[in-house]
Structures are given as structure tokens and as C-alpha cells.
């Protein structure tokens, strides 16, 4: 998780503060789930009314990313060894009132992991190869000079799947001190606990923050089938096959012509 603000800046007098609430804290994934829009309302409390910027970061559960690069071998394009990036969120959106680069400097954004370019996908510094699940030479490491290409490719491909995004005008002030943000959640969004971090910036510095959580969970039949398939895979497999064979048999009797 990104680093928190130093505790020293909270107790000062006239200190600005930020507060926010999600209109929905549980996203229920059922059979007609086609994605959702998470709406967030918040308020900036600042007795001195200094110019403020708000950044809302929605982050899904971390999922290691396996990525390969295609290269040409004997006329055929084949995948290289897959490279594993650790610490990549399964879902990430940074919405803000202005482009992030105008709100704060590089160092602050990097420390707060604000923006897809600042995600701490920690491929360990030294080149190590490990044996995983009996497969030799899986690289879990920095990739020398090409490292940035690989990193950008992760972000590009995740963005293409609507799993990563940066919305430079996703947060709007609707009234004095009152802001609203709308976060699109695609049907492909991973299941799990999400954190929503609301950051208040003034003069390029983060001055207040608030964390909220959001749960994306399967419900009903989808949840039952998913849990069955993952917790008791063999009984699920047998039942699924019995169902399929039974359906085939039933169909042939229904269409019997003699």
C-alpha cells in the first residue's frame, strides 16, 4: 500500500480536512452484472478557503501480473518467458480535479502512488531467476534497460482491458467545498476488497486524506458456482459433466423420431 501522510501535519490550527462517502460500499456481482458506476461525494473543510485539488484513487486487490513479449523466431512470433510483476493492483483508477502533473510534483505523486506511472510494481532490484511450480528460469526481476518498456506495457494492456485508468477531470466541485467523483467499474473488475483513498492537495502538497473501502463480491448463484468450482473442484467437475451428459441424453429423447 502507498505510504501514509506524516502524522505531524494533522493537529495544526486552521488545518484543512477532507471527508467523503461512497453512495455504495458493496458491489454485488450477480448474473446480470455488466459493470457499475461508483459515485463518491465529499467535502473539503478549510476555514481559510485556500485553492484545493482533490485526487481519488480506487485500488483493487493486488494481483501479480504475468506478461510476455513476442519475438520472431524462425518466422513465427512466439512469446518470451513470462515476467512476473509483483505489487500491481488488479484494478486502479486515479481521478482528479486537474491533471495530476499540475497538482503535485513527481516525488509526491510517486510516494503516494498517484497515477498509473507511479504504481510501485516492485520487480526486485537484482536479477534473480526462480523455479516456480517446477518451471525453471521464471524471471521475477528488473529487466535492465528494457524495464520501462515492460512496465509501460503492463499499464497499456491493463488500460486496454479497462482495468487501469487516469481520469484527469473525474472529480468535480459541485458547490463550494463539495465535490463529486464517478468511478466506472467494468464487468472484468476483480472480486475483493478495494480501497478508495481521497487526497486533498494544496499548493502542491498533500494536506489531508481519507480512506474508504469498497467490497466487490459475487452473490447468489454466481457466488455458489464460483466457490464450488474453486473449493471442491473435483465434485464440481463431476457434477458439471453429469449435467452435460444428462442434458444431451434428454435432448436426444426429446427429438426422438421413430
Amino acid at each position: 500500500m502507498p505510504a501514509s501522510l506524516p502524522p505531524a501535519m494533522t493537529p495544526a490550527p486552521h488545518a484543512p480536512a477532507v471527508s467523503a462517502a461512497l453512495t455504495e460500499t458493496n458491489v454485488r456481482v450477480n448474473s446480470d452484472f455488466r459493470g457499475d458506476r461508483i459515485v463518491l461525494y465529499g467535502a473539503v473543510f478549510d476555514p481559510l478557503s485556500r485553492p484545493s485539488d482533490v485526487v481519488v484513487i480506487v485500488r483493487g486487490p493486488d494481483q501479480p501480473v504475468r506478461i510476455a513479449r513476442k519475438s520472431r523466431v524462425a518466422g513465427v512470433w512466439i512469446n518470451s518467458r513470462p515476467v512476473v510483476f509483483q505489487g500491481a493492483p488488479g484494478f486502479y483508477i486515479a481521478a482528479s480535479t486537474r491533471p495530476l502533473d499540475d497538482i503535485a510534483r513527481f516525488g509526491e505523486l510517486r510516494r503516494l502512488e498517484a497515477g498509473v506511472d507511479h504504481l510501485a510494481m516492485n520487480a526486485p532490484a537484482e536479477q534473480t531467476t526462480e523455479t516456480r511450480y517446477g518451471v525453471r528460469d521464471v524471471v521475477v526481476s528488473r529487466l535492465g534497460a528494457d524495464y520501462l518498456d515492460w512496465r509501460r506495457a503492463v499499464v497499456r494492456l491493463k488500460t486496454a482491458e479497462h482495468l487501469y485508468d487516469v481520469d484527469e477531470h473525474g472529480v468535480r466541485f459541485v458547490d463550494k467545498g463539495l465535490f463529486r467523483a464517478e468511478i466506472p467499474l467494468p464487468a472484468e473488475a476483480p472480486i475483493g476488497q478495494y480501497t478508495v483513498r481521497i487526497l486533498l492537495f494544496q499548493a502542491g502538497q498533500p494536506v489531508a486524506e481519507k480512506d474508504r473501502t469498497l467490497t466487490v463480491e459475487k452473490v447468489g448463484v454466481e457466488r455458489g458456482l464460483y466457490l464450488w468450482a474453486h473449493r471442491r473442484p473435483w465434485s464440481y467437475g463431476l457434477a458439471a459433466m453429469a449435467f452435460a451428459l444428462g442434458a444431451g441424453w434428454a435432448a436426444s429423447s426429446a427429438f426422438r423420431r421413430d
Partner: peptide
């Protein structure tokens, strides 16, 4: 498809291996 130059040289692997 294997013989044409791909638009996107990188590919995400499904599954968490």
C-alpha cells in the same frame, strides 16, 4: 496470425501461475 507482425508486442498471461 503467428506469421504477421503483431500490433502489440506484449501480451498478458491469463492465470496467476
Amino acid at each position: 496470425g503467428l506469421f504477421f507482425t503483431p500490433h502489440e508486442p506484449f501480451v498478458l498471461m491469463s492465470g496467476n501461475g
